[in-house]
Computed example of a mutant assay.
Amino acid sequence: MSTDPSAVFRRYLGAMVLNSLAAAEAAGLNATDYYALNLLDLHGPLTSGELAVQTGLTTGATTRLIDRLEKGGFVRRVPDPADRRKVIVEAVAEPPGLDAVLAGTRSRLAGLVRAYSETERATLFDYFGRATSAYRDATDEIVSSRRG
């Protein structure tokens, strides 16, 4: 197996994506629904428009996403008190068994992180934060170029 840094990183990203897809399926969700629930867990309630931006979906696709999550009992729609034309999407439940589905991944990754020193962990999490911004910016560029 190649130790070329680019290949190592691409294998890492592929494994991460595959794990997320498998976890979503095991939890009875499609990948987009799983991602949307993660966004709501991280950010708290979002308007349907904010959810559309965060997922990269059109407003119509976001409406269908919210419909599926609401039908599954995972979210509810509430009127925005500041602007009743807007809808706020709140998470109300997580998929049954999700913690069990994620237990193996969480345990393995926690073990890896514990193996690093405080200084190394600080570097890792600094990277994660900076990489998140870099990926979001790159994603915005890709989406913008497709619309333009």
Rank of each mutant, 00 (worst) to 15 (best):
A52N: 05
D41L: 10
Y34S: 02
L46M: 09
E25P: 02
L51S: 00
D4M: 05
Y12T: 15
S48V: 08
E50Y: 10
L13W: 15
M16N: 15
S20H: 10
L42S: 12
S6E: 15
A23R: 03
R10S: 08
Y34E: 00
N38T: 09
L37T: 01
L46Y: 01
A31K: 12
G44R: 07
R10V: 14
S20I: 09
G14M: 11
N38V: 00
L42A: 15
N30E: 07
A31L: 05
L42H: 06
G44P: 00
P5F: 02
G49S: 14
G49M: 13
A27L: 13
T32W: 04
R11E: 00
L42W: 02
G44M: 01
N30K: 04
S20E: 08
L51P: 04
L18Y: 11
F9Y: 15
R11P: 04
L21N: 08
A36C: 03
G14T: 04
A36S: 04
H43K: 14
N30T: 05
G49E: 15
L29R: 01
L21R: 03
T32H: 04
A23F: 00
R10W: 11
A36M: 05
V17M: 09
A23H: 04
L42C: 13
L51K: 03
Y35S: 07
L13S: 13
A15T: 01
T47S: 15
A7I: 10
Y34F: 13
A23S: 13
A31P: 09
E25G: 03
F9G: 06
N38S: 11
L39F: 05
A27Q: 03
G44Y: 02
A27W: 11
S6P: 09
T32Y: 03
Y12R: 06
T32G: 06
G49K: 13
L29W: 00
Y12C: 09
L21K: 02
Y12F: 15
S6W: 11
N19S: 14
L21H: 12
S6G: 11
L39S: 03
P45V: 00
L37C: 02
M16A: 15
M16I: 15
L51V: 03
R10P: 07
H43E: 10
L39R: 05
D33M: 04
P45A: 07
S6M: 14
L39P: 06
N30L: 01
D41Q: 12
S48G: 11
N30Q: 14
L29Q: 02
R10E: 12
T47F: 08
A24G: 06
P45H: 05
R11C: 05
G14C: 10
L51Y: 00
L18S: 04
